Simulated assay, not measured.
Amino acid sequence: MLFLQYPPCSTCKRAKAWLDERGMSYTARDIKAENPSYEELRKWYQRSGLPLKRFFNTSGLIYKALGLKEKLPEMSEEEQLRLLATDGMLVKRPLLITERGIVPGFREAEWEKLL
């Protein structure tokens, strides 16, 4: 199981504690220091079955500064994935990647169902 996080993020800290409390084994990766590649993002997005917008950190400063709320609908999936691969701070976090599925963000019910 891969757990992508931004260590200073309070939601990521809560998600990590949630995993630890349940004794889950995972590999933690700093999403800012080691941004997911285009190939990883494409594979995760395709496996997830989720809308691509779920992979964007829509409350992030970079998302807002780039005006992505208005721009994303006009961009192709390819362009969106390439943009996500440019900066880990654009990616929704935490991001949990398991054999059974992928969940961007921390919603206990979704994580519970996945694990």
Rank of each mutant, 00 (worst) to 15 (best):
L2Q: 12
L114T: 12
K13C: 03
R47S: 13
L114E: 12
L115D: 05
A15L: 08
L41F: 07
W18I: 06
M24E: 14
L2P: 00
R107N: 14
N57M: 02
G60C: 12
P104R: 03
L96K: 02
L41P: 06
P94T: 03
E99G: 10
F56R: 01
S59C: 03
F3N: 02
R47V: 06
L19Q: 05
G23N: 02
A109S: 15
S76T: 15
G105C: 07
A17H: 13
E21L: 14
T11V: 11
T98N: 11
E79P: 04
A85P: 01
K13Q: 15
K71M: 11
E108S: 14
A85E: 08
D20K: 10
T86Y: 05
R82N: 05
P36D: 01
L52V: 09
E34R: 12
F55P: 01
K32I: 05
I97H: 01
P104H: 01
F3Y: 04
Q5W: 04
E74A: 15
R29A: 02
R54T: 14
C9T: 09
L68F: 11
L61P: 00
K64G: 08
E34C: 10
K53H: 12
A28F: 03
I62E: 15
I102Y: 04
I31H: 00
Q80E: 07
E78L: 13
W18Q: 06
C9A: 10
W44H: 08
E74K: 14
V103A: 10
I97L: 13
Y38K: 14
L81S: 01
R93V: 04
L95S: 04
P73G: 06
E21V: 04
T27H: 12
K32Y: 00
V91P: 03
E21W: 08
Y26T: 07
Y63F: 15
E39N: 10
D20L: 12
M24V: 13
K69V: 05
S59W: 01
L83Y: 11
Y38T: 09
I62D: 13
Y45Q: 14
R14E: 13
M75L: 13
K43M: 10
L41S: 05
K13Y: 03
W44I: 09
P36Q: 00
L50S: 09
G67N: 13
A65M: 09
G88W: 00
P104M: 04
L19D: 05
K113Y: 10
Q46L: 15
L66C: 11
L83D: 08
K53Y: 11
W44P: 03
M75A: 07
C9V: 13
S59F: 00
A15E: 06
K13F: 02
F55Y: 01
L95K: 04
I97E: 04
D30G: 01
K13N: 10
G23H: 03
K43I: 10
L68S: 12
D87H: 14
E79M: 07
L95A: 00
D20E: 15
L2G: 00
Y45P: 07
R47H: 10
N57R: 02
L90A: 11
